[in-house]
Each structure stands twice: as structure tokens, then as C-alpha cells.
Design a protein around this nucleic acid. Structure first.
Lengths: 207, 207
DNA sequence: TTTTTGATGATACCGCCGTATCAATTTCAT
DNA sequence: ATGAAATTGATACGGCGGTATCATCAAAAA
């Protein structure tokens, strides 16, 4: 009968616009009108697909996390098939560092969301304990596997290392974002930690 | 001549009010009127001491960093006089974790400032590379001293560890803030790292 | 007591932002 | 073509937030 349009695709297009503007001018400075303009669409249409701004933000957050997951997966694919635990862990940690535009936006906007979630009830729900929790679990499991394969040095606590590494990469990401240090030096610090955890001879062995 | 009032004290009072409101409702939600109400003062007076909101924010940021420094110093004093390098480092790292109301506010507001500084030119200046840079330098120097005193395990890179520890404590602080983990478990992770860096037998030795 | 400074009050301007309204118009599968 | 869905347009409301104005009152030092 009528005009058929992929609803989900439109929503993603608009959410993408939201993240682009947020990455450029900061999430706090993003208005509905800005999103509409960035998406090349009328303000009315943004209201049409997301009745309220809050819903738009929520959906944007989901898309942001999803995009991050896809970038991790892509990096893993690029690392080859039977990549060892260290390569997987490296992919996970390095992807969150603000190197290119995508990861920069991710880090900035994600941090903005995190700050908002502390005080705003609407965002305080699951979205901010779900994804990081999953990452922690994944990383801890990878470290445990590495231990069983005798790839790690003695005295390594898988869970504590997982928590520490994720926190460190997040903190490093922020320092890169604010211009305190380069992405390169941040990556070096992470590599240093991995060299400490893993035995010599693995991928990306120490100098 | 006329009524004499401690100008600096009034400014601090107002700035304190700003930080209190920011810690409660988030920095993004703080208005001039809120600050005035929190300080028990008229809106007009806030304009009187800080002509513009931007100046108020800048001054608030300074006060925030200053308050943090004072809390570190206090914790050091409490740790005793001739505290070893590890105790000093612990004081530095643990103070930034959101345990009580003061440190919680510090972390939240400081992170908000950091996010803003990425996109807003007014805040993008020194204030965000100055203090963290100083902390990094201090920490690196402390680690070097510990190395010379043979208190550390072999293979420790003082600077990389300094950078890593600061980033980790910042990241852990955020995860505590958003409710992902407790301050206690975050502290455990930091202790674990210090146990790894320092030889056994120092203050706060491993179990 | 006068004079200078601190402090207040009420109020308004202006602009932005989220939201709402409603009619009009384009697009397409049937 | 026709009818349902998609999309737009113009526009407005109400609220809030930073800033400005100006007159006024209080206080304390000279």
C-alpha cells in the first residue's frame, strides 16, 4: 500500500547524527535541532522517530556500545583467526583508546553518558553496569585461559588484573582525550602492562 | 571607611556552594540561581563576585583541585612523619577514590570538567594538563626514589608505572562512581598493584 | 554622622530548547 | 489512481537560564 521505509535504518541514521554532533561539540551541547540538521532531516522527523529526547539519548547510548563492539570484532578479525589470548586482550584494550575519530567520539560521549548517569535517574539503570561488566568478565576469562595455557607469569590474579587493565585503559583514554598525552604513549603503557603479565615470546613481545 | 569584608572568603563560600550543588545534581544542571540558593545568598551577589558563569566555573575548578591537594596532605599527615614511598603513593592514589562525600564530589565534578574541556575552549587551557602532569611527575619521582632505596621489585619502569597507576585509579574511581563496583574492591585492586611493584615487607604487605 | 562598600530585591530582556500542533505534501505498493 | 504511510513546514508555547538594570537598604570605618 503506502510508502515503505526501513524504520530501524532511519532510527540508526538519526542516532548516528546524534553521536557525530556529540563527538564534535560535546553531548551537553546537542539539541534536537542539531541532530536533525546533522542527519539532513527535519526537526519534526526526529520527533517522529524518537518522541522524546530522553529516548533518543538512550538509543544513542545503545548504538554507541554496539559500535564499539563491532570495532573490537573487526580488530580481532584483522588480527587473524587463531589469535592468542594476548592478541585478543590487546584488541579489546587498544580499541577503547581514542586514536581515530570513531574511538575519540566513543570515549568522549561514553564518558559524558557515564557522568550523566550518576545524577540522572533515567540513565542510571542497567546500561552502565551491563557493558563494562561483560567486558570485565570476558577479560578475566581470557586471562584465566592464558594462565591455564601457561602463557602468563606467576602470581597473576586474573580478576584483579582484568579490573585493573580496563580501568587503566579507560583512564588512559581520558588523558589522551584531554590532550595530556598521545595515544601512542598510552598504548605503550598498556603494552608495558601486558609484557608484565604475559611471558616472553608471545605476540608483541618486549624489546 | 566602609564595610570591610574578606573578598576571598566570600568567593570561596560561593565556589563551595557551586561544588556542592554540582556534586549533588551534576555540573551540567548547575545554574547561577542554584549556586546562590545553596550559598544562602542572592543571585545578585553571585554576579557581584563572579561577573560571569564561566569565571565562576574556572574558579570552582581551581578550588576543586586545591581541595584535593589538601586532602592528600591531610592523609599523609595522618600516615605519620617518616612515611615510606609506598605510604605516600597509597595516600595519593586512594584519596582520589570516591569513598566519602568529598571525594565523590571531587571525582564527579572533575570528570565533568574534563569532558567539558574537550569541546569548550574556555576550559581547554592549562588547568587540565597542569595538575595531572604534576601528579604524574611526583609519582614517578617517588617510584624512582623507591627504586634507589631498593624497595621495588626488578623490572619496574618508574614513569610507565606512574602513568599507569594514575590512569588506573582514575578509571577505578569512575567505576565506583557509576556504581559498578565498591570503593573497597577498587582499593583492593590498587593494593594488588602496589604489592606487585614493591617488595614484600613494606607497609601494607600482601596477605 | 557621613561616606564608602557590601548586599539585596524585583524584574525584565533575550535567546535557546524541548515539545506540541496541524495542515500540507511527497512517496509508493496495491 | 488511491490511499496509507512518510516527511515536511511553519509556527508557537512555556520554561529556564545567563545577564543586565536600577534603586535601595545595611553596615561599619572615618
Amino acid at each position: 500500500m503506502p510508502k515503505r521505509v526501513d524504520h530501524a535504518e532511519r532510527r540508526n541514521q538519526i542516532a548516528r547524527a546524534l553521536l557525530q554532533v556529540a563527538g564534535r561539540r560535546g553531548l551537553h551541547a546537542v539539541g534536537m535541532r542539531d541532530v536533525a540538521a546533522e542527519a539532513g532531516v527535519s526537526l519534526r522527523l526526529v520527533q517522529y522517530y524518537f518522541e522524546t529526547k530522553e529516548k533518543l539519548l538512550l538509543y544513542g547510548l545503545q548504538r554507541l556500545a554496539q559500535g564499539f563492539g563491532e570495532r573490537v570484532a573487526a580488530r580481532l578479525r584483522a588480527a587473524g583467526e587463531g589469535a592468542g589470548p594476548r592478541a585478543v586482550i590487546e584488541a579489546l584494550l587498544m580499541t577503547s583508546l581514542p586514536t581515530d575519530e570513531a574511538s575519540r567520539t566513543f570515549h568522549l560521549v561514553y564518558t559524558s553518558y557515564a557522568v550523566l548517569s550518576v545524577t540522572d535517574r533515567a540513565l542510571a539503570g542497567q546500561p552502565f553496569i551491563q557493558d563494562p561488566d561483560a567486558a570485565e568478565e570476558t577479560l578475566a576469562e581470557l586471562l584465566r585461559q592464558a594462565q591455564e595455557a601457561d602463557l602468563t607469569r606467576p602470581g597473576v590474579d586474573a580478576r584483579k588484573e582484568a579490573i585493573g587493565l580496563l580501568a587503566m585503559s579507560a583512564g588512559l583514554g581520558t588523558s589522551v582525550l584531554v590532550g595530556q598525552r598521545t595515544a601512542r604513549s598510552a598504548a605503550d603503557v598498556l603494552t608495558y602492562q601486558l609484557d608484565r603479565i604475559f611471558r616472553d615470546g608471545g605476540a608483541g613481545a618486549p624489546a
